Structures are given as structure tokens and as C-alpha cells.
Amino acid sequence: MFKHITILQAAELPEKTDRELKEAFTVIGLPKGEAEAAGVLAEHGAAIRGMAVRHAHIDARMLEKLPALEIISSYSAGLDGIDVEAAASRGVSIHNTSKILAQDVADLAVALSISATRGLMRGHDFVRNGNWGRQSFPLGRSLRSLNTGIVGLGHIGSAIAARMGAMGAMGAPVAYFGPRRKPVDHLYIDSIDDLAEWADLLIVTCPASPETIGLIGSSVLEKLGPRGFLVNISRGTIVNEPALIAALAKDGIAGAALDVFEKEPVVPDALRNDPRVVLSPHMGSGTQETRQQMGDRLVEALVTHFSAR
């Protein structure tokens, strides 16, 4: 279809997506080794017009080696590995899959919220360890009674708000924080500290950027307080892990549920061993259906772009 167009593939993709990409374009893989990657860019960089990426690091220096680049199509929702400003200054368009994966990630956010506030993992261990009938299991919190603060109201945050809010399944009060007010009915709070002070449950959904890395630190956790819960389904770098560990150690918050971590797949022992913390392995978009749709969207963005040329 577009065999005269060269695409640089810097991603491991589903089999169907990999096949369709190679059927449509001339594809060159980017090796993981630094020296090998430099060799591929030196040999083919001038011909590359598109990129298929997942968690690749694309900075201004790399873009200089790709003078013909027109489009970056990302398999993931996050763009934290891409220098968006440098790409924009070069006229390179960027496409991601945040809209496609929003529903599954929102489902997981609600599941983690229920797990943390009702103690589902502790209940599982309570039964498995034979304590049921010999001890009383502590009462949890009703999700619908908790002020739910959402950090970032993009595709994913909006899908969570739809589930958690007054018109959704949970019927909880919802407010959000972000760089700007959105045309929605939910309460907007223009300070992350103020949102945390208002919230009983704080759900992090914003993208990682210089402005958001470390955003959830000691001050925010202190405002959230000893009866508050933290859920993070966005990027691990947005939550200051040492600050979270310190808050848990002094009972500064009630619990946390985390799908993402600062140095994945490494998870600090203090989080792994705390029964108040629910953990999952960065599985927000991890369903067969959504992962394939993400792959389809990656190829579609490239095909649509070059079809218009």
C-alpha cells in the first residue's frame, strides 16, 4: 500500500499489528542497543517518514537524525518518553491511544478503589488463612460516601468520573484538578492541595510531564489525611514513592492502590508488604480486546496520515 514509505518501528507490537504494519509500509526496526540503534539511524534516518512507538525515548537529538519524519504513532496512552515540544516545532504530528484504552483503565481504577476502601485483598487473605469465624473482619468504607478527587480530567479521568459520579454507578461526589476548567458539571478545584484536602479518595489519571512528576508528594498526602485513600493508574513518577511510604508508615493515609510505579517492575518492599496497599502490574489497558484496538489505531493513524498526502 505504502511500500515507498519507510517507518521506524520502536515497539514490540501484537502479532496482527506487526503484520499489518509490515504489509502496509517498509518497516525498519530500531535495535535496543545504543550503538546498534545509532547505526540504524545513521543508515536510514534520512528516509524515515513515520515512527511506530510504545515506550521509546524520542528527544530533540534523535529528531535531528530523522529530517523527513512526519508522524509518530504511539501504541500507548502516555507521551512522557517523547519531547512533544521538539516534535511540534518540527511539524511532526503525534497520535496516541488514550481514548481507546480509557474505558478499561477506568474499570480498573474503580476496581482498585473498591479494593482499597473495602479491604478486598485483606478479606481474601482473611478467609484463605482460616481467620473467618475466629476473628472479626474490620469494616470498610462506602465508596458512594467518599468525596472522589480526580487528578486530570482527560479521556481516562472523564471515564472514571462517569462511573464514580452522581449519575454513575457509584453516586459519589466528584471534583477534579487540572491545568484548566473543563465544560463539565463536576466541581473544579484549581489547587492540587485543595483537592486533596476536599477528597477522601484521590485518583491520579494525569499524564507524566515536567509539571506533574512528583506532584503527589508529602504536602498532598498530608492534606489527604489519615482517612484518605490514594489510587494511581497513570504513571508511577507522578507519585513521590518515598513520601507515600513515609505517609503510610505514620498512618498519614488510610491506604493506597497502585497500578504503576516509579521504577517498574521494581516495587519497594515497604509497598509490597503493606496490607493497606493494593498492587497490580501496570495492567490498566491489559485486556485482549483493548490491546488489539490500540494496535489497530497505531496502524490506522499512519495509514490515514499518508493517505492524505
Score class of each variant (00 low, 15 high):
Lys32Pro: 10
Gly157Ile: 05
Ser145Arg: 15
Ile238Thr: 05
Glu264His: 09
Leu8Phe: 11
Glu85Tyr: 11
Ser145Pro: 10
Asn273Trp: 06
Leu202Trp: 08
Leu221Tyr: 07
Gly252Phe: 02
Gly295Arg: 04
Leu202Met: 09
Ala175Glu: 06
Ala111Tyr: 08
Ala24Thr: 01
Thr212Asp: 12
Ile156His: 08
Leu279Cys: 13
Glu15Arg: 14
Ala88Arg: 14
Met283Leu: 11
Asn96Pro: 03
Gly178Ser: 11
Ile160Gln: 00
Pro14Arg: 05
Ile245Ser: 07
Arg309Gly: 15
Ala116Asp: 08
Ala56Thr: 10
Val84Phe: 09
Gln288Trp: 10
Glu262His: 14
Glu64Thr: 13
Ile150Gln: 01
Lys223Arg: 14
Glu43Asp: 13
Leu146Val: 03
Ala52Ser: 09
Val105Met: 05
Leu108Cys: 02
Pro179Leu: 07
Leu69His: 01
Ala172Asn: 06
Val303His: 00
Glu241Thr: 14
Ser145Tyr: 13
Lys263Phe: 14
Val110Glu: 03
Arg118Gln: 11
Gly149Thr: 02
Ser209Cys: 07
Arg118Cys: 05
Gly119Trp: 10
Ala56Met: 13
Arg134Phe: 13
Asp185Cys: 11
Pro138Met: 10
Arg309Lys: 15
Met121Ser: 12
His124Ala: 13
Pro14Met: 02
Gly149Trp: 06
Lys250His: 15
Arg291Gly: 00
Leu146Gln: 09
Glu85Asp: 14
Ala11Cys: 12
Leu8Gln: 09
Gly149Ala: 03
Ala46Val: 13
Gly168Tyr: 06
Asp104Leu: 02
Gly286Lys: 09
Gly252Tyr: 00
Pro281Trp: 04
Lys22Ser: 12
Thr26Tyr: 06
Pro207Glu: 08
Leu13Lys: 13
Ile114Leu: 15
Leu279Asp: 11
Leu41Tyr: 10
Ala162Tyr: 00
Asp259Phe: 06
His57Ala: 14
Ala87Gln: 08
Gly284Phe: 01
Lys22Cys: 12
Ile100Gln: 02
Gly284Tyr: 04
Gly286Ala: 15
Leu79Ser: 07
Asp83Gln: 10
Leu195Pro: 00
Ala47Asp: 15
Ser142Met: 09
His44Asp: 12
Glu289Gln: 07
Ala162Val: 01
Arg276Val: 03
Lys65Phe: 09
Gly78Ala: 04
Lys3Gln: 13
Ala88Phe: 00
Val127Phe: 10
Leu63Arg: 10
Met51Ile: 01
Gly228Glu: 01
Met167Thr: 14
Val220Gln: 14
Ala270Gly: 07
Lys263Trp: 13
Ala77Pro: 00
Gly119Tyr: 09
Ala166Trp: 11
